[in-house]
Design a protein around this nucleic acid. Sequence first.
DNA 1: TGTAATTAAGACAAAATTGTCCGTTATTTG
DNA 2: CAAATAACGGACAATTTTGTCTTAATTACA
Lengths: 143, 143
Amino acid sequence: MLLTSACKYGIQATIYLGMQKDDSFVSIKKIAEEFTIPFHFLTKVLQLLTQAGIVESTKGAKGGVRLGKDPDAITLFDIIAVIDGEGIFHDCMLGLPGCGLNTPCPAHEFWAPIRTKYEKSARAISLKDLASDTIRKNLRIGK
Amino acid sequence: MLLTSACKYGIQATIYLGMQKDDSFVSIKKIAEEFTIPFHFLTKVLQLLTQAGIVESTKGAKGGVRLGKDPDAITLFDIIAVIDGEGIFHDCMLGLPGCGLNTPCPAHEFWAPIRTKYEKSARAISLKDLASDTIRKNLRIGK
DNA sequence: TGTAATTAAGACAAAATTGTCCGTTATTTG
DNA sequence: CAAATAACGGACAATTTTGTCTTAATTACA
């Protein structure tokens, strides 16, 4: 599995937040219902993103979450890195510590270019890209 | 995580089998020690590969495992598909069923090319490639 | 000021993955 | 044939991930 469920949920939620017209807060419950994500689980995922500054939150009535930065300044890489860690972008396919150009594993030549392409693409695509695409082409994010 | 531990172990073991000079059986215990893999766990992984015909086994003294086909005829794709399934090569990044050209998710354009490159490369690289590289360049597979 | 709404935080449960152990079956060798 | 070896198969334990529940803290609003 490429991404954990937690990370998939986080990406869905942040794209949804990126699609909002104004900067008012959206309740986590709303997002959870929208995409059929377990509410309390999503809460924890969004807390991670909040701690990282990608998301902002307020408690109480009319509270909820919204993006903590310009959607243009948040990349897919950022979100994945916060929730799943940067491992997928850097680690050896076989899990060998120290695998690299100097002391590669047998799969290094195979995996390194793909990993690099993945990282570059993930760093190049922003939440704004994803959200505006979703609106423009009327894509579904979940369900 | 891209590959499960089970799959990493399976790849290490099969590369090792591909490196053997003759077609005699290697005991699973030997392989487990070589790469510090939990013995009984490796046993189960190799059983999967045996059931799939990628590996052959015999019980008893002088028993063990060896490749079940020409190393040239076994690809990295085959091994991953047997142990982790083909999902990683085909599935939507966000896990949406039915995501594809017709009804893409917002990440489809991002992920599909990477996924395809991954699959093509994995289908193009054989155990013979991996094993001969390992021998020629004296690479480490584990530890 | 009090009530409803909503995130935060922690404990706990369920499920999946990983790892361990033991008895059975099959094979070689003395 | 007996003993040693080694894969097979099932049960079980540990760990991680995923999901649920409850209480506390904070905010808006009547």
